[in-house]
């Protein structure tokens, strides 16, 4: 990896039952993906509060991925559907305040989709890399922190 190339920082909020296990499968299958992502394991995507996403951006993430079970496969029946609703609303809000929607991703990756996980992660990283570092927010954030 050349040094000049921008290395985005991605935070992925994933559910324990589908996507986390899918990501494990990618490992067990020795598939390779770019190392720019950090996973936060939650019981269910339904647990994801939109504030987590804001927090991740605030702390320097350039992109966020939310990933859970496919609709109908949720370990807790409906959590992923609640997450989807929240996410649709939230991404519109992000759009409204002027945050490029290509920084925010949502996907369904099941426990058997190791390959899909790799594709999703690489795509998210590449997309965010194209958009560039999320300086705008970090700048505001720094000023805000200074005032505090």
């Amino acid at each position: 990896m050349s040094e000049e190339k921008f290395q985005p920082k991605i935070v992925a909020f994933v559910c324990n039952w589908c996507t986390y296990t899918g990501a494990d499968l990618a490992g067990t299958s020795r598939l390779k993906y770019q190392p720019n992502v950090r996973l936060i394991r939650l019981p269910c995507t339904g647990r994801i509060d939109p504030v987590f996403i804001i927090k991740a951006f605030e702390k320097g993430a350039d992109g966020v991925l939310v990933s859970g079970c496919h609709p109908g496969d949720c370990h807790y029946n409906l959590g992923n559907l609640h997450a989807r609703r929240r996410f649709i609303l939230f991404s519109e809000l992000m759009n409204y305040v002027g945050i490029d929607s290509s920084r925010l991703h949502f996907s369904w990756v099941s426990a058997s989709e190791g390959k899909k996980w790799v594709d999703v992660i690489n795509e998210v990283i590449d997309t965010v890399r194209e958009v560039g570092p999320f300086k705008k927010y970090q700048k505001i954030n720094k000023e805000f922190v200074l005032h505090e």
Binding site: M1, D24, G27, R30, K32, P35
Partner: peptide
């Protein structure tokens, strides 16, 4: 392991 050493090649990054 599953989410780091097995999916990445580059030692410093991993």
């Amino acid at each position: 392991r599953e989410q780091c050493s097995w999916v990445h090649d580059n030692i410093p990054d991993a």
